[in-house]
Design a protein around this nucleic acid. Structure first.
Lengths: 145, 145
DNA sequence: TTATGTGCAAACTCTTTGCATTACC
DNA sequence: GGTAATGCAAAGAGTTTGCACATAA
């Protein structure tokens, strides 16, 4: 069962309240946009999407909100070197990424053994793992054709 | 046995010649700097280091050279989101990274099972793997103290 | 009323590019 | 002599910040 948008919004409101911050329509709109997204989005893409519903929103608000949402663990980002980041909503189902170097497509996957192995490697080095990111670069099935 | 600087330079010269390009002292100096580096370096750090030996070198040359060296697989980079990249010489021994989110230290590691698992996951998805990058974020042993 | 959030524009950082000049082959 | 490489400065892209105003509590 997937977590609903309503639940995300409720959780966001609790966090906002708990931190003594204020409710904001923009923040919720950005969260909603990420909820509806079927793929990873750049800040610019989010900005354009959000503008459809609220034309007066500023790009800075998108950046500020994304930083906030990442800090409170609502979203994750993937870095693309000097080409910036892409964001996605944390849907509770952790996964890693295969990135096609030809068409840019991102394929998500989850592998239990991989997760277990990572924990083990970190433990061996005395490293307290908080998160990880595994990116596999290569050519996807379609682009090979 | 580690590959010597001389060998790196020889290999670089063959590649340069094979591509009909020209020898350049700057390129070799940058390669040498990466060879001597004990840790990952930003373009800026490389620039400052290289400047000690050749004060007239330009930052653009560093960027151009790093792009070239990465393209011919002499160096690898790690992305730090909007904070740019860090480079390291490819010493033939592939490894992954643990990055301390407190002090920024990068710990390298290699795990055979992890490598094998990655190949397997890619194969299952019909993905033709060309490289991967596994970054584990957390707190290193010293910072935990 | 008071502090947070916003929108705008300017500032900043990292990186790339255009161009005249230099260096290699 | 011809072409690649360089150094410089300017341009670009992505992101952050200062500030006045708007808005939630």
């Amino acid at each position: 069962m997937q977590k609903s948008l309503e639940l995300y919004l409720e959780d966001l409101r609790s966090i906002v309240k708990a931190r003594g911050l204020k409710h904001s329509a923009q923040r919720e709109l950005i969260l909603k946009t990420l909820f509806n997204a079927s793929c990873h989005m750049t800040p610019e893409e989010i900005y354009h999407e959000v503008k459809k519903e609220n034309p007066s929103i500023g790009l800075a608000t998108v950046y500020r909100t994304l930083s906030f949402l990442e800090k409170v663990n609502f979203v994750s980002s993937i870095s693309f070197g000097s080409n910036g980041k892409k964001y996605e909503l944390n849907r509770g189902d952790h996964h890693d990424h295969m990135i096609c170097i030809r068409c840019g497509k991102i394929i998500e996957f989850f592998d239990e053994e991989l997760e277990r192995l990572q924990e083990e490697i970190a433990r061996k080095k005395g490293f307290k793992l908080s998160s990880h990111q595994m990116n596999m670069y290569g050519i996807c099935q379609e682009c090979q054709a």
